[in-house]
């Protein structure tokens, strides 16, 4: 009864991440921190970035929202340790491209690691902003560093 598209968006890995929320819980200090609100649905997320020099040590986050926004933050948490700031910028750009691909995917999605499971979201225009929430927050952190 459930369509393939729906099952494709809500894969088991995604539902697991939405419950487990890797990286959930804010630290007392961070190199950058930003808060994102999606006013149409009320999803909220605070994203902290922790660096060693110009290499990402980790991110930590807190928020409330749908399974897609929570899973996306959890997957992002697993992706970023060890990336340089330039690499992180590129990953965020690639993920955005994937989300706007309307189900077509991107040529080389390898750099996105497990986060490629979110590809199914790109068929649902209304949900792309849910998947982007954590990534946009992290992008805002990077913009702060640049200042």
């Amino acid at each position: 009864m459930t369509s393939g598209d729906l099952a494709g968006m809500y894969q088991q890995v995604i539902l697991e991440h939405s419950r487990e929320k890797h990286g959930f819980g804010l630290h007392s200090e961070a190199d950058a921190s930003s808060h994102q609100l999606n006013p149409t649905c009320g999803d909220e997320l605070t994203m902290q970035l922790h660096l060693d020099g110009d290499v990402v040590r980790s991110i930590s986050w807190e928020g409330a929202g749908c399974s897609i926004s929570m899973a996306s933050a959890s997957l992002l948490h697993d992706l970023v340790p060890g990336l340089t700031i330039a690499e992180l910028h590129a990953r965020i750009g690639l993920f955005r491209e994937l989300m706007h691909s309307k189900g077509a995917g991107v040529d080389d999605d390898e750099p996105l690691g497990d986060a490629v499971v979110l590809e199914g979201v790109s068929k649902y225009m209304a949900r792309v902003k849910c998947a982007m929430l954590a990534w946009v927050a992290l992008e805002a952190d990077l913009a702060q560093l640049a200042k």
């Binding site: 369509s3 729906l6 809500y10 999803d43 929202g65 749908c66 399974s67 649902y124 949900r127």
Partner: peptide, 14 residues
Amino acid sequence: GVHAHDVGQFLDDR
């Protein structure tokens, strides 16, 4: 345990 957007998406599928 299920966000409203996910509920709505599930119903939309039907």
